[in-house]
Amino acid sequence: MQELKIVILDYGLGNLFSVQHVCRHLGYDTLVSHDRKDLLNADAVILPGVGAFRDAVDSMHGRGLVAPLKDFISSGKPFMGVCLGMQLLFSESEEFGSSEGLNILEGSIKKFPSADDAGNKIRVPQIGWNRINETAEGPKWKDSPLHSIREGSYMYFVHSYYAKPANESCILSVTEYEGLNYCSSVKQDNVFATQFHPEKSAGHGIEIYRNWLEGIRITD
């Protein structure tokens, strides 16, 4: 196990240590790094993130991390995105005008509306525990890091924006907030990403990390 090279990508935003803590709790060492070489040698990569989409994209470009991260993802090795780290995978965001994302998944990042159709106030950001549910069109949980998670389990969310994938086949789970059903996790080939924070979602969240980490293999 010790030889696994799991890189937590540091692009200057977000609480990387909470991701590192949960991995350590499960017996996995990780490397917090913004070095391209570490990315290219990694067996698995986690992209965390809290904050603004455009800052994150700018910072990744500034550190020369966009191309190596895309290369890593196309290598087929396990990749996990969390919160902003999931949103960054999409083509574009409407946050502060329009910004371009990594374009790994087709779709856009939208802001929660300030009121529902009936005019009731929607509190934004959404902060707190909400349920995740499987979809008919998307990948099955049994073939994903959610394989041991029960339908309707609560996960911890903090966000003002949500992802709207162009293709429903990548939507691993949906969550309902104030009448809006949105995509709360994605899976496509080796890419797995969650809008919620499994590292802040107590027992069930730790389980998701365990399931994902157990799927990592040492690569040459």
Binding site: H21, V22, R24, H25, E199, K200, S201, G203
Partner: peptide, 8 residues
Amino acid sequence: TAKELFIP
């Protein structure tokens, strides 16, 4: 706390 308890 942060190392042992996985809630915000």
